[in-house]
Design a protein around this nucleic acid. Structure first.
Length: 200
DNA sequence: ACAAGGATCCTCT
DNA sequence: GAGGATCCTTGTT
């Protein structure tokens, strides 16, 4: 069903446009399917973006073509999945922060220590663990069949908007930027009370 | 070689 | 809400 996958054109937009558009879409990988419930945009200029110090082997895929994965290992143990957007040469990406399970719940629970409920998937490291993401996925194509796939699904009716999490090192204006988006009607969201606005 | 710093998670109050 | 765990990447001797 090729029409179910998000096409390359979906990713060729600013991360601030792609981020809210990713809410509700499905990630298919590692024998499970997850519905995206929370994301953050990282773009340029942005003192919180991993591209802020330039191009390095670690963040190379962040500078590449849109529609590919950028996987970052955080605190040496958490595998964080990003979707590269906009265009090559500009560090633009969307971090997947939280999801709901769609299929493979037993597998997800096993990879997450047998836990239950939103704690399974309400954090970027948790999403990476549930999907069995690692650095071998870094640079993987998201719009071709056979690897990690992104499938089109209905968007949420309402959205929460707020500041991004865990970027205290960044400039004040970037720390406050409302570049975090979540499904307003999902319980599978992290740091829910720190959101500021609800749209529409 | 070595030191330092994380886009976090978990386990407590 | 706060603090420790934990280990890979990077930049510097």
């Amino acid at each position: 069903m090729t029409h179910r996958r998000l096409p390359p054109s979906f990713y060729k937009r600013d991360a601030l446009v792609v981020a809210p558009a990713l809410l509700g879409q499905h990630i298919v990988h590692g024998g499970v399917t997850l519905r995206i419930t929370e994301v953050e945009a990282y773009r340029w200029p942005d003192s919180a973006c991993h591209g802020r110090h330039g191009r390095t082997p670690r963040n190379e895929s962040l500078w590449g073509e849109p529609g590919y994965a950028y996987v970052y290992v955080c605190y040496g143990m958490h595998q964080m999945l990003n979707v590269v957007t906009w265009r090559a040469g500009v560090p633009n990406a969307v971090l997947v922060r939280a999801c709901e399970p769609v299929t493979g719940l037993a597998t997800i629970r096993r990879r997450r220590g047998g836990r239950s409920g939103p704690v399974l998937l309400n954090g970027p490291g948790k999403v990476g663990a549930a999907l069995k993401i690692d650095k071998t996925i870094d640079g993987a194509c998201l719009f071709d069949a056979g690897g990690i796939e992104m499938h089109r699904a209905p968007r949420p009716d309402a959205m929460l908007v707020g500041a991004r999490v865990g970027i205290d090192f960044a400039a004040a204006g970037d720390v406050a930027a409302p570049w975090r988006f979540a499904d307003a009607d999902s319980d599978w969201v992290s740091h829910r009370r720190s959101f500021k606005r609800r749209l529409p």
